[in-house]
């Protein structure tokens, strides 16, 4: 008897060799059309705008203020003393620390004032130093009090640290005469 055997059909197959090419194309499309955006920076809240003729000046004790002046040559004046930019944070740290336990309305205010021709880069460097001083004091305080780093604190603890060491940076009102 002749052996009747069903002819074996070749297995149906989708050719997948071009799959890699297709996905490469897609990959290249996404590579070209996208940007990896870095949204990092120094946050700040501006004061509300008050027309120049309505500005009221409140007296603030000299002890509370740290006035930072940066002129167009890049010289930095902290309360009348010339210092270099990398020294700002060290100078401010001690002053912030001395005010941790004081009342809310006696914390240190850092006022930054620049000239119109001061380079923006210098201003950012100075602002960075000020922020760094505040951050370091916060860090040390939370380590001392809670034994944790500032970012690891829970919400209540972080709030307490923030209340004890508020970041008050004031951008001085631009002077109209210099324009």
């Amino acid at each position: 008897m002749a052996l009747i055997r069903k002819k074996k059909k070749p297995e149906p197959e989708i050719p997948s060799s071009s799959m890699a090419d297709i996905s490469f194309l897609l990959l290249i499309f996404f590579l070209v059309s996208t940007v990896i955006d870095v949204d990092t920076g120094i946050g700040l809240t501006l004061p509300e705008y008050v027309p120049p003729d309505q500005i009221q000046t409140a007296p603030i004790s000299k002890d509370r203020m740290a006035a930072l002046l940066i002129n167009e040559q890049g010289d930095v004046l902290l309360d009348g003393n010339v210092i270099a930019i990398p020294q700002i944070s060290k100078n401010l740290k001690a002053r912030i620390e001395s005010k941790i336990e004081l009342d809310k309305n006696k914390k240190l205010i850092v006022s930054i004032k620049t000239d119109r021709k001061t380079s923006y880069n210098l201003y950012i460097q100075a602002l960075d130093q000020v922020r760094m001083a505040f951050n370091e004091v916060r860090e040390e305080y939370s380590k001392r009090k809670f034994g944790k780093r500032f970012i690891d604190l829970d919400q209540d603890q972080a709030q307490e640290v923030k209340e004890k060491i508020p970041v008050i940076i004031s951008i001085a009102e631009p002077e109209l005469i210099k324009k």
Binding site: I42, T45, L46, P47, E48, R116, I171
Partner: peptide, 22 residues
């Protein structure tokens, strides 16, 4: 320079956009 930055900040303050980020 800071001049233009200050100008823009003043404009933003007038527009009440007070949260900024350098």
């Amino acid at each position: 320079s800071m001049g233009i930055v200050t100008d823009i900040q003043q404009e933003l303050r007038k527009a009440y956009c007070l949260r900024i980020n350098y």
